[in-house]
Design a protein around this nucleic acid. Structure first.
Lengths: 225, 225
DNA sequence: CTTTTTAATTGATAAAAATCAACTTTTTAT
DNA sequence: ATAAAAAGTTGATTTTTATCAATTAAAAAG
């Protein structure tokens, strides 16, 4: 549960393709450089592409009626929008926004599907990624449902350390509001809880930099919360 | 959002198989009759089978540290445990329990994978189901995160009507506790909210029977909540 | 059919979290 | 460099929801 943001890199799936399949993909690919805060996918638009992140950090988020919700974060070398393949409405369920400058390959969905419907090993590999994403969202779902605010914050801090930055110290380039949207709590609440953790000597928080001082206690807060 | 329990029936996927592939599956299948409240899949056990529901109603649920959480409900003619295919831990993330007497086909996972790795159309069809499930869980995630308790209850009542029972009147054979576990709220709270809806003339609730009287107002409660 | 257990209901209270409002700091734009 | 805007912080208050405790109703077991 404390690696709920862990991803498996997807670039190896391309090794399963033969030259003609690779040609189909590459001839229907454009590589785009995005700036921080650029929208890559807008929810409610038609699905025409599948995206592969070459570099950068992304948020997958939903603009709800009242609240903004961040479903998850995604890093480099993964497919974005993969769960939109064969989706009945044909529309993106969520938006994808760059949290840092990034490079993204855009594949034409028809070409992608053509390869998917030709190469069974590739299809199985994609299924593996989708199922991995399902596991992630299930775990997130459970955390959001059974944990209180302090437990959620502890979980976020630990997950980012364990499965995104692989370090007890990192700088997460998102606002307090975005943290709140990720955890489904209010912005003021996250500020207060971070301060409390800081006062209790669990973390050092300086702006967007987070350093875990007492991981064991954080885990206890998570377990108890 | 008000059909968040809608499922697509999966039995057509078998039409994509040739005779020898069907043989592989059928020779590695057992059909089991379960009674109400029987456990079909236990979370934390190893994934050795994939299940196909011939009849019945099921809950997919997680026994968390403190709370019990119902992820979703599943009806007949769908695969159960499909997102466990290729899952890295090799263990079931959630339990599956029968809410009514039911019949389930159990396929050996190796045989299932063998067919999946042979027939590209079948693999693509399975991918479609998994992605459909992803859409469902995303929508559930959003509901659980952005809605208050009354909005969640209204959503549940409407979704069951629109996408499970296809009728304004139905009998849902789960306890108030299970409803609470499905919505991530307390059991007392769901009792109070159902009573409130009843007093306001939105629904008739008699034990486990629910009849929607004023769907428009329920939708307003959902929208506002 | 009666007893026992489980589920549902209700009211009172406590805890958690949101909201509101004021203010400070930081970032962005000019 | 300065002004404007956005983000972050803090305290007070309100709202929401959970918890606790008691009671009633329903279902299961003997």
């Amino acid at each position: 549960m404390l690696d709920c943001l862990k991803d498996i890199q997807h670039q190896e799936s391309f090794n399963l393709l033969n030259n003609s399949e690779l040609d189909v993909l590459n001839q229907n690919k454009i590589t785009v450089h995005y700036k921080k805060n650029d929208t890559i996918v807008k929810q409610g638009t038609f699905v025409n592409n599948i995206f592969f992140s070459q570099s950068g950090l992304f948020k997958l988020h939903v603009e709800g009626n009242q609240k903004n919700i961040i479903l998850t974060f995604k890093g480099s070398k993964v497919f974005l929008g993969i769960s939109s393949i064969y989706h009945s409405t044909g529309m993106h369920l969520y938006s994808v926004t760059a949290l840092e400058d990034c490079i993204v390959d855009m594949y034409d969905m028809s070409a992608f599907k053509q390869v998917l419907q030709t190469n069974v090993a590739f299809a199985n590999e994609i299924l593996k990624y989708v199922n991995h994403n399902s596991g992630r969202i299930f775990r997130r779902f459970i955390n959001m449902t059974e944990k209180n605010a302090r437990g959620k914050v502890a979980n976020m801090i630990l997950c980012l350390s364990n499965s995104v930055y692989f370090s007890p110290e990192y700088t997460l380039n998102i606002t307090r509001k975005e943290m709140a949207d990720f955890l489904g709590i209010s912005m003021e609440n996250i500020v207060r809880i971070l301060k409390e953790f800081k006062n209790d000597g669990l973390v050092i928080v300086e702006g967007k930099r987070i350093q875990i001082i007492n991981a064991d206690s954080l885990i206890k807060v998570y377990d108890f919360g």
